[in-house]
Amino acid sequence: MHDALTRLLADRDWLLADGATGTNLFNMGLEAGHPPELWNVDHPDRIRALYRGPVEAWCDLFLTNSFGGNASRLRLHNAQGRVGELNRVAAELAREVADASGRSVIVAGSIGPTGDIMAPMGSLTHEVAVEMFHEQAEALKQGGVDVLWVETISAAEEYRAAAEAARLADMPWCGTMSFDTAGRTMMGLTPAQLSALVEKLPNPPVAYGANCGVGASDLLRTVSGFAASGSERPLIAKGNAGIPRFEGGHIHYDGTPDLMADYACLARDLGVRIIGGCCGTMPEHLRAMRIALESRPRGERPSLETITRQLGGFSSASDGSDDSGPGRERRGRRRS
């Protein structure tokens, strides 16, 4: 496949991806419960500013403001008829900022979970899920994204539906899950199971991995599970900037730029090819990550002990490979 992301990966050992969407938008005045996707049309200058943050931090890739842009999520705000408009504009604004940068910057069309429970546990069928994802994918494609970016998925069935939608749209794609409950996703998938799932898809992603979760340490333990599977497909790590704490009526993440710089280099040394942040990761974190990745020499593959020594302890004793994982679905959250 000769898409822009594959070409860039062929030339580079690692790529720096963007950070948080929600944290930045809340700082711009977004109110809790208000769908960020409406800002693509209502406040395009703020979305341009959102996109310029990672571009000016010298990221190689950033995501569009379209995480909750599927019909199911937008229906909660009586905006299900605006899927095409909101996703297309999200992509157009991103394309505008990327093209103005004067360098090669990948625009990735963010596609989050539907928020519904897939059959047989729930009522969302494969066919309907594919239809929703395909509608979003076509609009992002029309707006000019380079690649579709499926993120924060927890169910294998939803991952498969998104993969099929990418095939129908004839678009390259990447896909990450969130392993936030005892080393597994909320539907109980382990890192090894995602690695196996990816290789069985008729149109596997350009790259796959993990995003969000509980913290940087946990995410790198998950990445270690991917690497142990033996897959040679490029890996993605987009961890949160520390642990969220509720202070003064707002959620704050305790991860410093220095911590995220350490996390980025540890991810690189684990073999991750696309390294970014998720909730709480601001442009100052991204700048520190870029400087560290460029200035620190590559080290040996870090052990779990090294990861906890530099980033802090794990949130659970389990890495997901035992029988202590969860068995329930969740309504996927957006990158905050």
Rank of each mutant, 00 (worst) to 15 (best):
R82T: 02
A156Y: 10
S336F: 15
R333P: 00
L93A: 06
T114W: 04
R328H: 13
E85C: 10
V147T: 06
V198T: 08
I274N: 00
W173E: 00
E96V: 08
S72G: 04
E158A: 08
A267G: 02
S316Q: 07
A227F: 00
L219P: 11
W39S: 04
P172W: 04
K200E: 15
D323Y: 13
V145T: 03
S101L: 09
W149C: 14
E37Y: 02
R233L: 07
A207F: 02
L266R: 09
P54M: 06
G276V: 03
P204C: 02
G102P: 04
A317G: 14
L148C: 01
K141L: 02
I275G: 01
V223R: 01
A108L: 01
N87T: 07
L219E: 05
D322G: 12
M187L: 06
S224A: 13
I236T: 07
P204S: 03
V198I: 15
D42P: 00
P205L: 08
D146V: 06
A182S: 13
R330I: 15
N211G: 06
Y159R: 07
V150I: 15
G144Q: 10
R46T: 10
R287W: 11
A91I: 07
H134R: 13
D319Y: 12
S72P: 00
D323S: 15
F62W: 05
C278D: 09
G112N: 05
S101A: 15
L219Y: 04
R221T: 05
G81T: 12
E300K: 11
A156S: 13
G175Y: 01
S123N: 12
D18V: 02
R273L: 03
I243A: 07
L5F: 03
E85W: 06
C212G: 10
A32Q: 13
L76R: 14
P205S: 11
L304D: 14
E199A: 13
A57H: 03
A90P: 00
E85G: 09
P297F: 10
E232N: 14
Y263T: 01
D323H: 15
E305W: 03
R233H: 05
L8P: 05
D319H: 12
T176K: 04
S315D: 12
T114S: 14
D146K: 00
P113R: 10
H34S: 14
G225A: 09
A228H: 03
D42W: 06
A79L: 14
S66V: 08
E294A: 14
S178N: 09
A267W: 00
A100C: 07
R7Y: 06
D262W: 01
C265K: 12
D60C: 09
A94P: 11
